[in-house]
Structure formats: C-alpha cells, structure tokens
Amino acid sequence: MSELSNPVANAAVPGVNWNRKAKFQKRLFILLATVPMFAGYIVFTLYPNLLSVYYSLLNWDGIKEPVFVGLDNFGNLLKDEFVWRALRHNLILMGTVTPAVILISLILAYLIANKGYRFSSLFKVIFFFPNILSTVAISLLWAFVYDGSFGLLNAGLRLFGVDIGNYYWLGETGTAIWAIIPPSVWGAAGFYFVIFVNAMSTIPKSLYEAAILEGASHRIRLFNITVPLIMPIIRIAVLFLMLGVFKGFENILILTNGGPSGSTEVLGLYMFNIAFGSGIHNYGYASAIGMLLFIILVAAKLTIDRFTANRDSEF
C-alpha cells in the first residue's frame, strides 16, 4: 500500500489535507456561484417559455377557465393576414436597420481607431450617448422631430427650400414604417461602435503601415484588412441586431402603436396587443404568435451560422 493511499500516512502529510480542503472550497464556490444563476434561468426563462408552449394550445383570456383547442391557434395564425403584414414589416426593419447600424458603426469605429483624432475620447462619449437614454426618451425625442407642426425635420426641409406643409411623417401610411428606421439606427449604432472600436484596437498597427506603404486607401484598409480580422465580432453583432430588431417593438409602441392603419405593426407588437390590448385578451393566440416568433428567430440564427464563417483570425 502506497503512502498516499494510507489514511494514517495521509494524516502525517500536511499538503494532502490542504489540497483536499482547497478542492472542496473550489467546488463549493462553483456550486454557490452557479446554482442561483441556473435557478434564475429555470424560473424566469425556461419555465415561462415552456408555459407559453402550453398556453398556445389553449383558448384562454387569463380569467375564465381555459379551453384546450390543440393546434387551432396555429391554424388560425396561418390564415391571419395581420400576422403576415406584421411579419413583412419585421423583415423591412431587419433588412434596413441591421446593415445600416453595422455599416455606420464600422465606419465611425475605423475613423476613431485609425485617424488619430485629437478628441477621440470625446467622440466615443458622444456616439455612445444615445445608449444611455431609455427607449421611451429616444422615441419621444424622435416623435418631436417628426411632428408636423413643430417638428425639426419639416423645419430643416424648409431651410433648404422644401416646404411640405404640416406633414406628419408618423401619421401617413406611406412614410410611417420608414420613419421608424432612423430612431432605431440612432439608438443602436453607438453601442456597436464601442464594440468595434475595442475590436479594432487589437489589430497590429504594422498591418496598416504595410498597407499604407503599398498605397492602400482607407476604403481598402477598412474592407480588406479591418473587416476580415474582426469578422467574428461583426458576426455576433449582426446576430444580436437581427434578433433585437425582430423581437423589439417598444419604440414602435410609443411612436405609432402600430398605426396608422397597421402600417407599422410588427409581430411583437401584434402579440402584445392580442394579449394585453384593450378589449382583446387571448393569451392562447398570443402564445401561438410567440411560438412563430421563436421559430423565426431560431431559423435566422441557424442561417447566420450557415452562411457566415465562424473562425478566429490570426495576425
């Protein structure tokens, strides 16, 4: 029998007891640190999601006795023209807001990281400022910009000789959905700008110096050097932006509440109004819309993984 496997011998070796105590303390710390997180995830995320699956099979207003209807809610969903109209608006916002935020954030981050501006730290604060504001504050600010009588947009157009009268940008079906895009871009670009600036700071300056000696322009340096090297970060940013645009509806709720005539309604807002809107309380049907939204988000994530390289760049 070896000395370490002998309890009597182990008692005489102080290092053995210390190692056992250290391992126990490490495992106890990991347990205490992870169990509350897992418990919170189960209670506030996993359980509500599983409950939503169950609710989607019911006809229930939250008060009366629920009635099991099986897949009827999903059948009604496929025939609901308002669902497909809202989905179309989601796709419009996702196809415009996401690339606009990524492109603007990349260009601003490149300029700050490589042009060596004197007040670059001040610019970082200015660009990030919209993210300090709440969604309510941003929405109310842009509602004032778009106001027909006193709005800054109409006043600015008049300065350039374009007088369109008291045109309410959020009150016309032809412009309302497009008027949602600038507030969404303005509110998100600063956050991804900071992420891209930090990612670009890890790129060796020697790569840019070599490109300058070769006569490469800023456009070539941005899209041929910077973008490929931070592509894993851009990929994650695109994923979070797409999911955020698809799920979010708070700014639309404040700016237009889906109007006029449903021209700005998105899936999340439609689901919210079905569940909590005045005169309508159908948690079962709203949960079915939530399941559709979940499937779309998973499909979007898998599509990004499929068509975007997921590899680390080395330099």
Results as ranks from 00 to 15, higher is better:
209 E>N: 10
289 I>P: 05
178 W>Y: 15
300 A>M: 15
180 I>G: 00
310 N>R: 13
251 N>T: 14
220 I>A: 12
239 L>N: 06
261 S>M: 12
237 A>Q: 05
282 N>T: 09
177 I>L: 15
304 I>A: 03
222 L>K: 03
234 I>W: 01
185 V>D: 02
302 L>G: 05
193 F>P: 00
292 L>C: 11
264 T>C: 11
215 G>Y: 06
229 L>Q: 06
229 L>I: 09
182 P>Q: 06
281 H>D: 00
193 F>D: 03
272 F>Q: 12
211 A>S: 12
235 R>H: 09
299 A>P: 06
221 R>F: 00
248 G>L: 08
181 I>H: 05
267 L>C: 00
302 L>W: 08
222 L>C: 01
235 R>L: 06
305 D>F: 14
203 I>A: 05
224 N>H: 13
195 I>D: 00
209 E>V: 08
200 M>F: 03
193 F>K: 04
207 L>C: 03
193 F>C: 05
238 V>N: 03
303 T>C: 06
261 S>G: 08
243 L>V: 15
190 G>L: 07
225 I>S: 06
285 Y>M: 09
205 K>W: 09
224 N>P: 00
194 V>S: 01
192 Y>V: 04
269 L>E: 07
266 V>N: 01
278 S>T: 14
188 A>R: 13
232 P>Y: 11
194 V>Q: 01
250 E>S: 11
184 S>H: 09
252 I>T: 02
264 T>P: 05
228 P>F: 05
193 F>N: 04
244 G>A: 08
297 L>P: 00
193 F>M: 10
295 I>V: 15
271 M>S: 15
259 G>M: 06
179 A>R: 01
182 P>N: 07
227 V>I: 11
269 L>S: 08
289 I>G: 07
235 R>A: 12
274 I>N: 10
305 D>S: 13
208 Y>Q: 05
292 L>T: 10
178 W>T: 04
306 R>N: 08
296 I>G: 03
260 P>H: 13
274 I>A: 05
234 I>P: 00
308 T>L: 12
191 F>M: 06
179 A>G: 03
227 V>L: 12
238 V>D: 02
291 M>H: 08
196 F>N: 01
286 A>P: 10
273 N>S: 08
191 F>Q: 03
240 F>N: 00
201 S>H: 06
177 I>Q: 08
202 T>D: 12
187 G>D: 01
281 H>T: 10
216 A>E: 01
211 A>I: 07
189 A>F: 14
178 W>C: 03
185 V>Q: 03
267 L>R: 00
261 S>N: 10
233 I>V: 15
182 P>M: 09
279 G>P: 11
290 G>Y: 11
234 I>G: 01
177 I>P: 06
177 I>T: 09
